[in-house]
């Protein structure tokens, strides 16, 4: 375990908790894509199938449970919580995310590290995580609403990606047999999509800031 990876896991967890607390505190999820949050929950559920078969460390097991629980908590909040679900932009969050699920699964069946049930679902979760931000990106472009996408959420999401890239570079130079090319290539695509998302976030934030200037 190197510092980049640990910090990456922490910032990833914080980004999820910041979003969950923001939704729960303001009892509003306007501007948040439920489809992206559902894809994230699916990413964790399909990536941690080895939760009960392979024990790597207490840290690994605890973090997997926390990621699954917190991502499901956000989906539950947006689907079930009376007040929150009323503020959901149902008519704007229309990205056909099942196409992303189908595409990533097809790719995972073709490109994986080993043609086994667990490895195919692991590759699927890696590909899905890379594109999961798309419904949120489209929603942000349509609504321009950043009320619930706090700057902290964006910052921690970006930090998570940057730290994981540093982690892979670090492991490439320090470990003899480090080959995670599926995760690395997919991670670079994901970081590119996040950069695009941040760009639209900045535009919306700047635009909103202008709107709120005293007339």
């Amino acid at each position: 375990m190197n510092i980049f990876r640990f910090a990456g896991d922490m910032t990833h967890l914080i980004s999820i908790l910041v979003l969950l607390l923001k939704i729960y505190a303001t009892k509003s999820c306007s501007g948040i894509s439920l489809k992206t949050q559902e894809l994230y929950a699916l990413v964790f559920l399909t990536r941690y199938l080895d939760l009960f078969t392979d024990f790597i460390s207490v840290y690994n097991t605890v973090m997997k449970l926390v990621f699954i629980a917190s991502s499901l908590a956000i989906v539950w909040c947006m689907r079930m919580h009376g007040l929150v679900k009323r503020s959901y932009d149902k008519e704007l969050d229309t990205f056909r995310h099942y196409l992303l699920v189908a595409g990533c699964f097809a790719l995972a069946v073709l490109v994986n590290e080993k043609f086994t049930f667990q490895e195919i679902f692991w590759a699927f979760s890696i590909y899905l995580e890379a594109v999961a931000i798309l419904p949120q990106l489209v929603l942000l472009q349509r609504s321009g609403n950043v009320d619930n996408l706090t700057g902290q959420y964006i910052f921690f999401l970006g930090a998570y990606r940057a730290l994981y890239l540093l982690n892979w570079i670090y492991r490439y130079f320090t470990e003899v047999r480090f080959s995670r090319w599926i995760a690395c290539v997919s991670g670079i695509v994901q970081t590119g999509l996040y950069a695009d998302f941040f760009y639209y976030y900045f535009l919306s934030w700047k635009n909103n800031a202008k709107l709120q200037l005293p007339a």
Binding site: R5, D50, D54, N60, M63, K64, W122, N167
Partner: peptide, 10 residues
């Protein structure tokens, strides 16, 4: 035992 590096990253 699985000799390859297990998926130790989250």
């Amino acid at each position: 035992a699985k000799d390859e590096v297990t998926k130790d990253e989250l």
